[in-house]
Computed example of a mutant assay.
Amino acid sequence: MSWLDRVRNALPFTAKRDTADNLWHKCRQCQQMVFVKEWEDNLNVCPRCDHHDRIGAKERFAQLFDGGLHEMIAAPAAPEDPLKFRDTKKYVDRIKAARAQTGDRDAYQNAFGRISGQGVVIGVQDFAFMGGSMGVAVGEAFVAGVEDAIRRGVPYIAITAAGGARMQEGTLSLMQMPRATVALARLRRAGLPYIVLLTDPTTGGVTASYAMLGDVQIAEPKALIGFAGQRVIENTIREKLPEGFQRAEYLLDHGMIDMVVHRKDLPETLGRLIGYLAPEKAA
């Protein structure tokens, strides 16, 4: 051991894991360093540039339900590797890694709770789990959430964040698009509202199905929303697309969504919508 190591070990330095990693958050938009507590107190929104960071089901439920109180809804079991798929890694290994990282079984979670005192089932798609990709498990969870809302007689809210269908499940992943559409038809026959909150990013097959079928379409500020990527579209049509194309504000201006709502205003906005659309059923 060198003299420098001996001196360093003798001094009361704070371990690295107790300082920078825990105290600071770097905004991916403005690149500014923000105190983690300030960032979390601001609902995971950058207080400098107002960038709405991606969050998972746990944070969504805590922020939206009254007092954060909710009851998780178990999703049916789904085949984990129906095609025995492998690319650079086995599909089952990718699933295991995503579960270890997020602590969730798959990319979609449902919970029942109250917003402004009104009952509602919320489903949240987590981009941190394999890019929020839509596979059989996501389809099963979505349908289970809709069916639970029908059973309880309350509205269903879907919060989307996805890169599209899960390629490792091939056609089976694409089949979740019509499955979700049929489930929503049953919800409407029951006279219950379906509200969608589009968050960054919502793309691919998710956008082509349940993400754009809401009675009311809401988006968070500057959320990326679209089917194909901007570069793919530009290369296909041989034209330069407008600035901000596929962002929430552009879609609002062109009638694709109904409103853009800041995260801090979501509980009040959703509560008001539920009161308008289902004043008796959500009681």
Rank of each mutant, 00 (worst) to 15 (best):
3 W>T: 14
5 D>V: 05
5 D>A: 10
9 N>S: 07
18 D>C: 02
30 C>N: 11
34 V>C: 04
35 F>V: 15
36 V>E: 12
38 E>S: 14
39 W>F: 14
40 E>S: 13
42 N>R: 12
42 N>W: 06
48 R>V: 14
51 H>K: 13
51 H>A: 14
51 H>G: 15
52 H>K: 13
52 H>F: 07
53 D>P: 08
56 G>M: 10
61 F>L: 07
61 F>P: 07
63 Q>T: 09
64 L>M: 08
70 H>A: 01
70 H>F: 00
84 K>S: 09
87 D>P: 06
89 K>E: 14
89 K>D: 15
92 V>N: 12
99 R>E: 12
102 T>W: 05
105 R>F: 05
112 F>G: 02
112 F>K: 02
113 G>E: 01
124 V>W: 05
124 V>F: 03
125 Q>D: 13
126 D>K: 10
129 F>V: 06
130 M>L: 11
130 M>P: 10
135 G>C: 05
136 V>K: 07
146 V>C: 05
146 V>K: 00
147 E>Y: 07
148 D>M: 10
148 D>Q: 12
151 R>L: 15
154 V>A: 01
158 A>H: 11
159 I>Y: 14
163 G>V: 07
165 A>H: 03
168 Q>R: 09
170 G>Q: 02
181 T>C: 10
181 T>P: 08
186 R>M: 11
192 L>D: 00
199 T>E: 15
208 A>G: 12
218 I>L: 13
219 A>Y: 04
230 Q>G: 09
232 V>R: 10
236 T>H: 09
245 F>L: 11
249 E>V: 01
253 D>Y: 02
256 M>P: 11
265 D>M: 02
272 R>P: 02
273 L>Y: 03
276 Y>C: 13
276 Y>N: 14
278 A>Q: 00
281 K>T: 00
283 A>T: 03
